[in-house]
Amino acid sequence: MNGEKQKKPVYISQIVIKILSYAVLIGGCLMVLIPIAVILLGAFKDGKEFANTGVFQLPESFALDNFKTAFFEGKVMRGLVNTLLMIVISCAGTIMTGTMTAFIIQRFDSKMTRLIKGAFLLATLLPNISMQVTVFQIISKIGLYNTMAAPIILYVGTDIISIYIFMQFLGQIPVSLDESGIMDGASYPRIYFSIILPNLKPAIATVLIIKFVSIYNDFYTPQLYMQDERLLVVSTVLYKYISSTKIQWEVVFAGIILCIIPTLLIFLFLQKYIYSGLVSGAVKE
């Protein structure tokens, strides 16, 4: 008797909690998906239809005209190409400079390297966006304004988080590996290229993911340094749409969808790495 009495209420409250849990999750997902779904629906409508139908109304046909307009005339293609180019060059640069810096600081422990490490850590404190007030003047003085080199050099040169991630990871690679290299008579550059670099692969993957997401989504740096039409990137293409006087919303929506697709694909394929990569990156900030 007694046992039954105790069991029943627990059972009901568990069901209630389950239902509430799903309600919270489904509600959350609707919050995320509805605003995006509206954009997706709008992207298929033509100008007139867009103006005259409600936001939830399905489009008459799923024609891809808006996507074509956005991709070619709307310069989304150029934005994607430029962004990709920037990402590839910056990633290559960051991996080179980041792993080399981390290698020296982590392996050659001396007063000098400790000082340099301190300098890099100090730099993480500086707020990136408002620093641009004076960085801008240096960039224009050395003649990099309105070139793709400006953002790239900033993505490579002011990325201290990556160095930090590499240093952390290097700390887990046993020094005895280096020593065995030395026993075999390998020079330090050789040790770096054939022992350290291959062992850093997981850290490099993490940095690549963080780099991709942050450069693909960065708005302010390209907006400030690349005003030239030919240098549009994903963010600035989209921003250009809404800052013009006459906005064709259905094309803007198609542009947004086109710009989200690469992110979505990468997320679907690299989900697991993205969760851990981004979290470990941000924690170091």
Partner: peptide, 20 residues
């Protein structure tokens, strides 16, 4: 995945979505 995805989205895209 659904709840995390907005974090990866382009900030300008997010802003236009919410303008709408």
């Amino acid at each position: 995945g659904v709840l995390f995805f907005p974090y990866l989205m382009n900030g300008v895209a997010v802003s236009i979505i919410f303008l709408r």
